[in-house]
Design a protein around this nucleic acid. Structure first.
Lengths: 158, 158
DNA sequence: TGAAATAATATCGTGCACGATATATATTCG
DNA sequence: CGAATATATATCGTGCACGATATTATTTCA
Protein backbone atom coordinates (compact mmCIF):
# COMPACT_ATOMS: atom_id res chain seq x y z
CA UNK A 1 0.00 0.00 0.00
CA UNK A 2 1.11 3.54 -0.74
CA UNK A 3 1.50 5.45 2.51
CA UNK A 4 -0.23 8.82 2.29
CA UNK A 5 2.10 11.22 4.01
CA UNK A 6 1.39 14.84 4.85
CA UNK A 7 3.26 16.94 2.32
CA UNK A 8 2.33 20.31 3.81
CA UNK A 9 4.93 22.20 5.79
CA UNK A 10 4.45 22.44 9.55
CA UNK A 11 2.78 25.63 10.74
CA UNK A 12 5.53 26.80 13.05
CA UNK A 13 7.76 27.66 10.07
CA UNK A 14 5.05 29.74 8.39
CA UNK A 15 6.00 33.14 9.70
CA UNK A 16 9.74 32.49 9.71
CA UNK A 17 10.70 31.42 6.17
CA UNK A 18 9.45 33.74 3.40
CA UNK A 19 10.28 31.06 0.82
CA UNK A 20 7.29 28.96 1.87
CA UNK A 21 4.79 28.32 -0.89
CA UNK A 22 1.74 28.77 1.29
CA UNK A 23 2.90 32.12 2.61
CA UNK A 24 3.03 33.59 -0.87
CA UNK A 25 0.20 35.82 -2.00
CA UNK A 26 1.16 35.28 -5.60
CA UNK A 27 0.62 31.56 -5.36
CA UNK A 28 -2.90 32.15 -4.04
CA UNK A 29 -3.51 34.38 -7.00
CA UNK A 30 -1.99 31.87 -9.38
CA UNK A 31 -3.96 28.87 -8.14
CA UNK A 32 -7.21 30.80 -7.74
CA UNK A 33 -6.84 32.01 -11.32
CA UNK A 34 -6.56 28.40 -12.46
CA UNK A 35 -9.63 27.42 -10.47
CA UNK A 36 -11.49 30.29 -12.14
CA UNK A 37 -10.30 29.13 -15.52
CA UNK A 38 -11.51 25.59 -14.95
CA UNK A 39 -14.92 26.83 -13.89
CA UNK A 40 -15.11 29.11 -16.92
CA UNK A 41 -14.16 26.20 -19.14
CA UNK A 42 -17.27 24.40 -17.95
CA UNK A 43 -19.53 27.45 -18.11
CA UNK A 44 -18.26 28.58 -21.52
CA UNK A 45 -18.42 25.15 -23.10
CA UNK A 46 -21.89 25.90 -24.47
CA UNK A 47 -20.62 29.02 -26.24
CA UNK A 48 -17.55 27.17 -27.51
CA UNK A 49 -15.29 29.94 -26.19
CA UNK A 50 -12.14 29.86 -24.08
CA UNK A 51 -11.84 32.39 -21.27
CA UNK A 52 -9.47 34.73 -23.18
CA UNK A 53 -11.79 34.51 -26.18
CA UNK A 54 -14.71 35.38 -23.93
CA UNK A 55 -12.76 38.43 -22.72
CA UNK A 56 -12.32 39.61 -26.31
CA UNK A 57 -16.04 39.20 -26.86
CA UNK A 58 -16.82 41.19 -23.70
CA UNK A 59 -14.70 44.04 -25.04
CA UNK A 60 -16.38 43.95 -28.44
CA UNK A 61 -19.87 43.70 -26.96
CA UNK A 62 -19.11 46.92 -25.12
CA UNK A 63 -17.76 48.69 -28.19
CA UNK A 64 -17.59 47.29 -31.69
CA UNK A 65 -15.01 48.07 -34.39
CA UNK A 66 -11.88 48.39 -32.30
CA UNK A 67 -8.43 47.83 -33.72
CA UNK A 68 -6.02 45.20 -32.39
CA UNK A 69 -4.13 47.63 -30.14
CA UNK A 70 -7.34 48.83 -28.52
CA UNK A 71 -8.14 45.24 -27.58
CA UNK A 72 -4.58 44.63 -26.36
CA UNK A 73 -4.75 47.75 -24.18
CA UNK A 74 -8.11 46.82 -22.80
CA UNK A 75 -7.07 43.26 -21.91
CA UNK A 76 -3.49 44.20 -21.01
CA UNK A 77 -2.20 41.52 -23.34
CA UNK A 78 0.50 41.64 -26.01
CA UNK A 79 -0.27 41.72 -29.71
CA UNK A 80 1.54 38.37 -29.94
CA UNK A 81 -1.20 36.88 -27.79
CA UNK A 82 -4.15 38.74 -29.25
CA UNK A 83 -3.48 38.42 -32.98
CA UNK A 84 -3.74 34.62 -33.10
CA UNK A 85 -6.66 34.74 -30.67
CA UNK A 86 -8.53 37.06 -33.05
CA UNK A 87 -7.72 34.80 -35.98
CA UNK A 88 -9.25 31.86 -34.17
CA UNK A 89 -12.36 33.90 -33.39
CA UNK A 90 -12.51 34.98 -37.03
CA UNK A 91 -12.31 31.31 -38.00
CA UNK A 92 -15.25 30.64 -35.69
CA UNK A 93 -17.18 33.31 -37.57
CA UNK A 94 -17.91 35.59 -34.62
CA UNK A 95 -15.85 38.54 -35.86
CA UNK A 96 -14.22 40.06 -38.95
CA UNK A 97 -10.67 41.41 -39.37
CA UNK A 98 -10.28 44.16 -41.97
CA UNK A 99 -7.51 46.64 -42.69
CA UNK A 100 -8.61 50.19 -42.01
CA UNK A 101 -9.03 52.35 -45.11
CA UNK A 102 -7.86 55.49 -43.26
CA UNK A 103 -4.74 53.85 -41.82
CA UNK A 104 -3.60 50.74 -43.61
CA UNK A 105 -1.53 49.69 -40.57
CA UNK A 106 -4.58 49.11 -38.45
CA UNK A 107 -6.79 46.03 -38.50
CA UNK A 108 -10.35 46.80 -37.47
CA UNK A 109 -12.18 44.09 -35.58
CA UNK A 110 -15.95 44.01 -35.95
CA UNK A 111 -18.60 41.59 -34.72
CA UNK A 112 -20.56 39.45 -37.14
CA UNK A 113 -24.25 38.78 -36.58
CA UNK A 114 -23.24 35.47 -35.04
CA UNK A 115 -20.92 37.31 -32.66
CA UNK A 116 -23.65 39.73 -31.64
CA UNK A 117 -26.15 36.92 -31.11
CA UNK A 118 -23.66 35.15 -28.86
CA UNK A 119 -24.08 37.96 -26.34
CA UNK A 120 -27.62 36.82 -25.60
CA UNK A 121 -26.33 33.35 -24.81
CA UNK A 122 -23.71 34.86 -22.52
CA UNK A 123 -26.17 36.91 -20.45
CA UNK A 124 -26.31 34.40 -17.63
CA UNK A 125 -22.60 33.70 -17.30
CA UNK A 126 -21.70 36.40 -14.73
CA UNK A 127 -24.56 35.22 -12.53
CA UNK A 128 -23.41 31.64 -12.96
CA UNK A 129 -19.87 32.54 -11.91
CA UNK A 130 -21.02 34.66 -8.98
CA UNK A 131 -22.89 31.64 -7.64
CA UNK A 132 -19.84 29.41 -7.88
CA UNK A 133 -17.79 32.04 -6.02
CA UNK A 134 -20.13 32.18 -3.02
CA UNK A 135 -18.98 35.72 -2.48
CA UNK A 136 -21.02 38.83 -1.71
CA UNK A 137 -21.11 41.67 -4.20
CA UNK A 138 -19.44 43.94 -1.65
CA UNK A 139 -16.59 41.54 -1.11
CA UNK A 140 -16.15 41.09 -4.86
CA UNK A 141 -15.91 44.83 -5.39
CA UNK A 142 -13.53 45.22 -2.46
CA UNK A 143 -11.33 42.38 -3.67
CA UNK A 144 -11.31 43.78 -7.18
CA UNK A 145 -10.11 47.14 -5.90
CA UNK A 146 -7.28 45.57 -3.95
CA UNK A 147 -6.17 43.46 -6.90
CA UNK A 148 -6.33 46.38 -9.32
CA UNK A 149 -4.19 48.46 -7.00
CA UNK A 150 -1.59 45.70 -6.80
CA UNK A 151 -1.62 45.31 -10.55
CA UNK A 152 -0.96 49.03 -11.01
CA UNK A 153 1.85 48.92 -8.45
CA UNK A 154 3.48 46.01 -10.24
CA UNK A 155 3.09 47.75 -13.60
CA UNK A 156 4.93 50.82 -12.28
CA UNK A 157 7.94 48.70 -11.39
CA UNK A 158 8.40 47.33 -14.90
CA UNK B 1 -2.33 61.58 -36.81
CA UNK B 2 -4.04 58.66 -35.09
CA UNK B 3 -6.86 59.96 -32.94
CA UNK B 4 -6.61 58.54 -29.43
CA UNK B 5 -10.15 57.75 -28.42
CA UNK B 6 -11.35 56.62 -25.01
CA UNK B 7 -12.06 52.92 -25.25
CA UNK B 8 -13.29 52.51 -21.67
CA UNK B 9 -17.01 52.17 -21.05
CA UNK B 10 -18.80 55.07 -19.40
CA UNK B 11 -19.25 54.73 -15.65
CA UNK B 12 -23.02 54.98 -15.60
CA UNK B 13 -23.30 51.50 -17.14
CA UNK B 14 -21.01 49.91 -14.56
CA UNK B 15 -23.63 48.71 -12.13
CA UNK B 16 -26.22 47.87 -14.77
CA UNK B 17 -24.63 45.41 -17.20
CA UNK B 18 -22.91 42.41 -15.59
CA UNK B 19 -21.18 41.64 -18.92
CA UNK B 20 -18.83 44.62 -18.50
CA UNK B 21 -15.18 43.66 -18.44
CA UNK B 22 -14.24 46.08 -15.71
CA UNK B 23 -16.96 44.85 -13.39
CA UNK B 24 -15.57 41.34 -13.41
CA UNK B 25 -13.53 40.15 -10.47
CA UNK B 26 -12.05 37.39 -12.54
CA UNK B 27 -10.54 39.82 -15.00
CA UNK B 28 -8.83 41.66 -12.15
CA UNK B 29 -7.42 38.36 -11.03
CA UNK B 30 -6.41 37.43 -14.54
CA UNK B 31 -4.64 40.68 -15.35
CA UNK B 32 -3.03 41.00 -11.91
CA UNK B 33 -1.69 37.47 -12.31
CA UNK B 34 -0.06 38.51 -15.59
CA UNK B 35 1.44 41.58 -13.97
CA UNK B 36 2.86 39.33 -11.25
CA UNK B 37 4.24 36.99 -13.86
CA UNK B 38 6.01 39.78 -15.70
CA UNK B 39 7.58 41.03 -12.49
CA UNK B 40 8.68 37.52 -11.59
CA UNK B 41 10.16 37.12 -15.05
CA UNK B 42 12.43 40.06 -14.29
CA UNK B 43 13.24 38.99 -10.74
CA UNK B 44 13.84 35.34 -11.64
CA UNK B 45 15.98 36.09 -14.69
CA UNK B 46 19.13 35.78 -12.56
CA UNK B 47 18.15 32.28 -11.45
CA UNK B 48 17.14 31.31 -14.99
CA UNK B 49 13.77 30.05 -13.73
CA UNK B 50 10.22 30.66 -14.92
CA UNK B 51 7.59 31.30 -12.28
CA UNK B 52 6.10 27.78 -12.42
CA UNK B 53 9.62 26.36 -12.22
CA UNK B 54 10.28 28.58 -9.19
CA UNK B 55 7.12 27.16 -7.58
CA UNK B 56 8.41 23.62 -8.05
CA UNK B 57 11.68 24.65 -6.43
CA UNK B 58 9.81 26.22 -3.49
CA UNK B 59 8.03 22.93 -2.93
CA UNK B 60 11.25 20.93 -3.08
CA UNK B 61 13.13 23.36 -0.85
CA UNK B 62 10.46 22.71 1.75
CA UNK B 63 10.61 18.94 1.39
CA UNK B 64 12.90 17.00 -0.87
CA UNK B 65 12.23 13.66 -2.57
CA UNK B 66 8.57 14.03 -3.44
CA UNK B 67 6.94 12.14 -6.25
CA UNK B 68 5.22 13.79 -9.21
CA UNK B 69 1.72 13.55 -7.72
CA UNK B 70 2.84 15.19 -4.49
CA UNK B 71 4.11 18.15 -6.49
CA UNK B 72 0.92 18.24 -8.58
CA UNK B 73 -1.22 18.25 -5.43
CA UNK B 74 0.86 20.92 -3.80
CA UNK B 75 0.74 23.24 -6.85
CA UNK B 76 -2.78 22.22 -7.87
CA UNK B 77 -1.57 21.49 -11.37
CA UNK B 78 -2.14 18.51 -13.64
CA UNK B 79 0.51 15.90 -14.30
CA UNK B 80 0.37 16.98 -17.95
CA UNK B 81 1.72 20.35 -16.87
CA UNK B 82 4.16 19.17 -14.24
CA UNK B 83 5.88 16.27 -16.01
CA UNK B 84 7.39 18.38 -18.82
CA UNK B 85 8.18 21.12 -16.31
CA UNK B 86 10.18 18.63 -14.24
CA UNK B 87 11.96 17.37 -17.34
CA UNK B 88 13.08 20.90 -18.15
CA UNK B 89 14.31 21.38 -14.59
CA UNK B 90 16.12 18.07 -14.81
CA UNK B 91 17.71 19.30 -18.04
CA UNK B 92 18.86 22.38 -16.17
CA UNK B 93 20.52 20.12 -13.63
CA UNK B 94 18.66 21.35 -10.55
CA UNK B 95 16.84 18.10 -9.84
CA UNK B 96 16.84 14.36 -10.56
CA UNK B 97 13.95 12.12 -11.65
CA UNK B 98 14.25 8.49 -10.58
CA UNK B 99 11.76 5.64 -10.46
CA UNK B 100 11.02 4.56 -6.92
CA UNK B 101 12.39 1.13 -6.00
CA UNK B 102 9.43 0.42 -3.68
CA UNK B 103 6.78 1.40 -6.23
CA UNK B 104 7.96 1.43 -9.82
CA UNK B 105 4.99 3.61 -10.83
CA UNK B 106 6.30 6.56 -8.89
CA UNK B 107 9.00 8.94 -10.03
CA UNK B 108 10.87 10.48 -7.11
CA UNK B 109 12.07 14.05 -7.58
CA UNK B 110 15.16 15.03 -5.62
CA UNK B 111 17.26 18.18 -5.60
CA UNK B 112 20.82 18.16 -6.89
CA UNK B 113 23.52 20.18 -5.14
CA UNK B 114 22.98 22.86 -7.78
CA UNK B 115 19.28 22.89 -6.92
CA UNK B 116 19.98 23.24 -3.22
CA UNK B 117 22.48 26.02 -3.80
CA UNK B 118 19.91 27.88 -5.86
CA UNK B 119 17.89 28.39 -2.67
CA UNK B 120 20.52 30.76 -1.33
CA UNK B 121 20.25 32.86 -4.47
CA UNK B 122 16.46 32.91 -4.07
CA UNK B 123 16.50 34.18 -0.47
CA UNK B 124 15.82 37.77 -1.43
CA UNK B 125 13.05 37.17 -3.96
CA UNK B 126 10.04 37.35 -1.61
CA UNK B 127 11.34 40.63 -0.21
CA UNK B 128 11.89 41.90 -3.74
CA UNK B 129 8.32 41.04 -4.73
CA UNK B 130 6.83 42.48 -1.54
CA UNK B 131 8.49 45.79 -2.38
CA UNK B 132 7.05 45.83 -5.88
CA UNK B 133 3.58 45.11 -4.44
CA UNK B 134 3.61 48.10 -2.10
CA UNK B 135 1.29 46.18 0.14
CA UNK B 136 1.36 45.74 3.92
CA UNK B 137 1.90 42.28 5.38
CA UNK B 138 -1.55 42.43 6.97
CA UNK B 139 -3.22 43.22 3.68
CA UNK B 140 -1.29 40.47 1.94
CA UNK B 141 -2.41 37.90 4.49
CA UNK B 142 -5.99 39.15 4.35
CA UNK B 143 -6.04 39.05 0.57
CA UNK B 144 -4.54 35.59 0.54
CA UNK B 145 -7.27 34.32 2.82
CA UNK B 146 -10.00 35.75 0.63
CA UNK B 147 -8.47 34.29 -2.53
CA UNK B 148 -7.95 30.89 -0.96
CA UNK B 149 -11.58 30.79 0.15
CA UNK B 150 -12.74 31.63 -3.36
CA UNK B 151 -10.46 28.97 -4.82
CA UNK B 152 -11.93 26.35 -2.49
CA UNK B 153 -15.48 27.45 -3.37
CA UNK B 154 -14.73 27.15 -7.07
CA UNK B 155 -13.13 23.74 -6.57
CA UNK B 156 -16.26 22.46 -4.84
CA UNK B 157 -18.35 23.34 -7.89
CA UNK B 158 -16.27 21.27 -10.29
C1' DT C 1 -3.76 -17.28 -8.36
C1' DG C 2 -5.22 -14.26 -11.84
C1' DA C 3 -8.59 -11.15 -13.98
C1' DA C 4 -10.46 -6.58 -12.97
C1' DA C 5 -9.88 -2.30 -10.91
C1' DT C 6 -6.97 1.35 -9.40
C1' DA C 7 -2.96 4.33 -9.34
C1' DA C 8 1.19 6.92 -11.21
C1' DT C 9 3.09 8.86 -14.92
C1' DA C 10 3.53 10.00 -19.75
C1' DT C 11 2.06 11.32 -24.64
C1' DC C 12 -0.63 14.08 -27.77
C1' DG C 13 -3.17 18.01 -29.40
C1' DT C 14 -4.84 22.74 -28.73
C1' DG C 15 -4.67 27.26 -27.02
C1' DC C 16 -2.73 30.87 -24.45
C1' DA C 17 1.31 34.27 -23.17
C1' DC C 18 5.26 36.70 -24.09
C1' DG C 19 10.08 38.22 -25.65
C1' DA C 20 12.64 39.00 -29.79
C1' DT C 21 12.20 40.26 -34.20
C1' DA C 22 10.26 41.47 -38.91
C1' DT C 23 7.39 44.15 -42.11
C1' DA C 24 4.63 47.55 -43.82
C1' DT C 25 2.50 51.97 -43.32
C1' DA C 26 2.36 56.58 -41.48
C1' DT C 27 4.45 60.67 -39.44
C1' DT C 28 8.14 63.92 -38.55
C1' DC C 29 11.47 66.97 -39.59
C1' DG C 30 15.79 68.47 -41.95
C1' DC D 1 10.37 66.20 -50.88
C1' DG D 2 12.76 62.28 -48.66
C1' DA D 3 15.39 60.07 -44.99
C1' DA D 4 14.77 59.01 -40.12
C1' DT D 5 11.55 57.75 -36.81
C1' DA D 6 7.42 55.97 -34.89
C1' DT D 7 3.32 53.06 -35.09
C1' DA D 8 0.42 48.82 -36.00
C1' DT D 9 0.44 44.27 -36.72
C1' DA D 10 2.45 39.83 -37.60
C1' DT D 11 5.90 35.82 -37.30
C1' DC D 12 8.76 32.76 -34.65
C1' DG D 13 10.33 30.18 -30.72
C1' DT D 14 9.66 28.61 -25.94
C1' DG D 15 7.09 27.38 -22.05
C1' DC D 16 2.97 26.71 -19.57
C1' DA D 17 -1.92 24.50 -18.83
C1' DC D 18 -5.18 21.13 -19.48
C1' DG D 19 -8.47 17.50 -21.51
C1' DA D 20 -8.34 13.05 -23.62
C1' DT D 21 -5.95 9.10 -23.82
C1' DA D 22 -2.19 5.52 -23.32
C1' DT D 23 1.08 2.71 -20.65
C1' DT D 24 2.89 0.36 -16.96
C1' DA D 25 2.79 -1.10 -12.18
C1' DT D 26 0.22 -2.20 -8.10
C1' DT D 27 -3.75 -3.64 -5.52
C1' DT D 28 -8.09 -5.93 -4.88
C1' DC D 29 -10.88 -9.65 -4.58
C1' DA D 30 -13.43 -13.45 -6.79
Amino acid sequence: MTEKQDISPSDDRRSIDPLLLDSQLCFSLYSTMHAFNKTYRRVLKGLDLTYPQYLVMLVLWERDELNVSDICDRLRLETTTVTPLLKRLEGRGVLRRERSKQDERQVIISLTDVGRTLKEQARNIPHCMAEALECSLDEMIDLQGRLDRIRENLSKHL
